[in-house]
Write a protein that binds this DNA or RNA. Structure first.
Lengths: 214, 214
DNA sequence: CATCAATCTGAACGTCATTCAGATTGATGC
DNA sequence: GCATCAATCTGAATGACGTTCAGATTGATG
């Protein structure tokens, strides 16, 4: 598998092949298992070849990360919208966490700021755009201001809304539920049953009632 | 600096010296900058010496991680308690995030499950115990059941409460606020002013009012 | 004082990212 | 059709990494 055959001395589209190879390596072995040499080998090329197409390992991984953000954004974009803001916010958060759980290696990559050139303009754009629908859903739920898509204005509730999903994603990938709780249900059912219950506790349909006793 | 002098062939307490050295390296250069050879050199010892005291790099970092969790737990334990559950939960979350922001390298370490032996019993114990007060504060806020410290029963609101702080911590360390928002206030004031506003939006003093418009 | 186990050294080995001189070739201009 | 040139790729460096191991050193035990 891998190692696309080659007839000529030149590859043809080594750049794309390296991106593809890197993604599948990260899928199979995680970011920690990724090396530039592996990617080169899988693309059927010598270890020095990638340097002509990317600025080192970080340059290649930055491009991969951009694609991951784009895919995350695309998955969040096609999620259904209802007339219940709470449900929509939960849907977005569930989509976010599900993406992380289903693509653990790639999600870890976009969180490894040491492996990525975070100053890259394309990366910045992709990381922002991926969460446009999430942002809108949060704004609708908290109903404080109409979601101005262009502006990146800070709002406490937006940070709070992002933090919940992002924290859950990290917790799952770090295996924290197993550390914090004697999980009655196995890890497989987490996404299907446990996650919705957490999101429901976070953003209930009805505005909160008195939750803490006197 | 570093490189504790040594008169005899044997070190005396190399184990402690390696832990100490590792911690300061991670403080100064982050987990990514840590290498076992650096730690050995800083302890004034050859690269092969650590193997007599730890099971490889992972063994050493696991011990460091345990100490980090213990320190986090100690910092959360001395936080003030009031008669307002919401305030106490916010205080715990603020303590958690502040610890991460003030110890970025060490916090990243305890999240790098690939660098740590997560099956280590001492590690599991430390990671659970560190959050006892956080858990109690969350239980009091949501007021659903009395905090049973021994049991690790799963509750959706507990996972939700942890996720917020954990997500904020990761977001800060990943520099996401700068990616998501045109931060009006510089990153320095985040902990002092921005973080409290986020936590207040998450867990307000009064039970929530109607927040979303029709 | 002899013995032994614990500890430490220093030199391996294999792998990594990166660099670079030289080989190869696609494309351009004639 | 052919010469030229820049882009591309090879393969062998260089230096750092974790880990292993034979041999040196020494504290402790008897």
């Amino acid at each position: 598998m891998g190692a696309t055959e080659r007839d000529s001395y030149h590859h043809g589209d080594l750049r794309a092949a390296l991106i593809e190879a890197s993604e599948s390596i990260i899928r199979e072995e995680g970011v920690e298992g990724f090396t530039l040499r592996k990617a080169a080998k899988r693309a059927g090329v010598s270890p020095g070849a990638p340097s002509h197409h990317f600025k080192g390992t970080k340059g290649l991984l930055t491009v991969v990360a951009i694609r991951v953000f784009q895919r995350l954004g695309a998955e969040l974009a096609i999620l259904p919208v209802s007339d219940v803001p709470a449900r929509d916010l939960r849907t977005q958060a569930e989509g976010y966490v599900t993406f992380a759980a289903q693509n653990p290696g790639l999600f870890r990559l976009i969180c490894r700021v040491d492996l990525i050139d975070c100053q890259d303009q394309e990366f910045r754009e992709a990381s922002f755009s991926a969460l446009v629908h999430y942002r809108n859903a949060a704004a609708a739920y908290f109903g404080e201001d109409p979601p101005d898509r262009a502006a990146r204005i800070f709002r406490p509730y937006l940070a709070s809304a992002f933090a919940t999903a992002h924290g859950l994603a990290h917790m799952i990938l770090e295996g924290r539920p197993a550390l914090l709780f004697d999980t009655p249900d196995p890890a497989e059912t987490f996404i299907e049953t446990t996650l919705p219950s957490i999101l429901l506790a976070t953003w209930p349909d009805r505005p909160c009632e008195v939750r803490h006793s006197a």
